[in-house]
């Protein structure tokens, strides 16, 4: 765990960054002022977080349904352990795949590779999934299309 290496100021910075990013000329200055440090110090520490890979990305997330991606499927694949790296590599190359994780199995549940696939329509999404199956040679898989979003949020760290 790296958490013990985080200072109180680090946690203050993380807390202020996980709120809304101000859309104005000097957004970092606005955030730095909230926690009482200089903009230079704030920018320097953010760059450190990026280097340490504590920050994955600064950027925007679209409401993808509104942006036209209406078909979203979670696919569970049963991949022989010795083929998992090469299979994942093929899946990751496809830009329609946003997530690709190797996961533990469960009793009567042998699926070990999980991908999220996004497309404009159900037909297009089905075609992408079939193509992935063909390219990887994985025949055993299940597709779970999203029906309703009950929650999608970013974690609020260090708020408990």
């Amino acid at each position: 765990m790296d958490e013990k290496n985080l200072t109180r100021l680090d946690k203050e910075i993380i807390k202020v960054l996980q709120g809304d990013f101000p859309i104005c000329e000097e957004p970092y200055k606005v955030l730095a002022e909230k926690i009482g440090i200089s903009e230079e110090e704030f920018l320097r520490r953010i760059k450190n977080f990026v280097e340490e890979k504590k920050i994955r990305r600064m950027g925007a997330v679209l409401r993808h349904r509104e942006a036209g991606f209406k078909a979203n499927a979670l696919c569970a694949w049963e991949v022989p352990p010795e083929k998992i790296d090469e299979t994942a590599e093929i899946m990751c190359k496809n830009s329609a795949v946003s997530h690709c994780y190797d996961r533990t199995t469960a009793p009567n549940w042998n699926y070990n590779l999980y991908t999220m696939v996004h497309a404009k329509s159900r037909q297009e999404c089905d075609e992408i999934i079939l193509k992935l199956a063909e390219q990887t040679g994985i025949k055993n898989f299940q597709v779970f299309y999203s029906k309703k979003e009950w929650k999608k949020t970013s974690m609020k760290y260090f708020c408990e």
Partner: peptide
């Protein structure tokens, strides 16, 4: 800035901000 405020109020943006690696923050 004006365009982003517009797109944000129209609901295209879920969020602008920072995405942390939860593992690296000890979660």
């Amino acid at each position: 800035i004006e365009k982003l405020r517009e797109l944000s109020s129209e609901g295209y943006l879920r969020r602008i901000g920072t995405f942390f690696d939860s593992d690296k923050l000890g979660y």
